[in-house]
């Protein structure tokens, strides 16, 4: 059954054996090392199922017994972002990365590395806490908590829904941060508030600033984006938009927030305190 009729795709050879090269580390701050495994992938297998195979039989290609490779995952359908890793040098989700696509021939090699912009928990599993911290910096939510019912919110136009819908599909995976030259690993949590916030948070700020109720806290979001590590720290390399698995127009969000901060700063200068 040819599920993906892709013209350029080489047909996978059934029963082939391929190599998986994994960059491993035993824990946070521990030195990393490479280990290679040989596996015979099932048809339509993804990276996760191959990692499961390795976990069931943790023996390297050289025949040495080792510990099972650790990884993170959740939804297995590219909506949670937990399984994000660097596959053959490119950041993407391992659950939606099919072996038949990237290693169709016998002897093909797949390299797996943890994202380098987040601290490693173990092997391919990283701690994305800073990504969520940065969403808090811009209050990426709609303020609805109160002591009484706020009633129905205002109606949103269809045109605005169309713009906001795609922004809302962000799954906090971290691809945009991993590929961004301005976003670097920061172990010191006290610096998280002043180092680059990242394309995902800028885009989420735009999403909630456009929301009819969310716009009530627009000024707070823009204030956060004016400061150190805010939108000005983007260097316009535009890698983020190219690696985002949800094809979110991140560079448009960055420019839109650039405009909003320009106007906000001018308004502040004339009417702020």
């Amino acid at each position: 059954m040819s599920a993906q009729p892709s013209a350029s795709r080489t047909p996978p050879i059934a029963g082939r054996r391929i190599r998986i090269k994994v960059k491993r580390a035993d824990g946070p701050g521990k030195p990393s090392r490479w280990e290679e495994f040989e596996v015979q992938p099932e048809p339509n297998a993804n990276i996760i199922s191959v990692l499961q195979q390795i976990a069931a039989n943790p023996v390297t290609a050289e025949g040495d017994h080792t510990s099972p490779v650790a990884w993170d995952s959740g939804c297995l359908e590219e909506v949670c972002g937990a399984c994000t890793m660097v596959i053959n040098g490119r950041v993407r989700q391992s659950c939606s990365c099919l072996i038949d696509d990237i290693a169709p021939a016998p002897g093909d090699v797949i390299t797996l590395e943890p994202m380098e912009k987040f601290p490693v928990v173990r092997d391919l599993w990283v701690d994305r806490a800073r990504l969520f911290h940065n969403l808090k910096r811009v209050k990426a939510w709609v303020p609805i908590d109160g002591t009484y019912s706020l009633g129905h919110g205002p109606t949103e136009s269809a045109a605005q829904q169309a713009v906001r819908y795609v922004l809302s599909t962000c799954m906090s995976c971290g691809c945009c941060l991993e590929a961004c030259p301005q976003f670097t690993l920061e172990d010191d949590e006290t610096r998280w508030d002043t180092t680059f916030i990242g394309a995902h948070a800028i885009s989420q700020a735009r999403l909630f600033n456009m929301h009819e109720t969310g716009r009530q806290t627009k000024a707070d979001r823009l204030d956060a984006l004016l400061g150190p590590g805010g939108v000005s720290d983007c260097g316009n390399a535009q890698n983020c938009v190219k690696v985002c698995p949800k094809e979110i127009p991140l560079t448009e969000s960055i420019a839109a927030i650039g405009r909003a901060t320009t106007l906000h700063a001018i308004a502040q200068w004339f009417s702020g305190r």
């Binding site: 590929a179 030259p181 301005q182 670097t184 680059f196 720290d233 260097g235 390399a237 535009q238 890698n239």
Partner: peptide
């Protein structure tokens, strides 16, 4: 001062925009 906040990664992400980021 600003340029020193970034780290080039054109070896991995060989996009034209990324090259221009580095060249800039």
């Amino acid at each position: 001062y600003y340029a020193r906040t970034g780290r080039f990664n054109t070896d991995r992400y060989r996009y034209q925009d990324n090259w221009r980021y580095m060249l800039q």
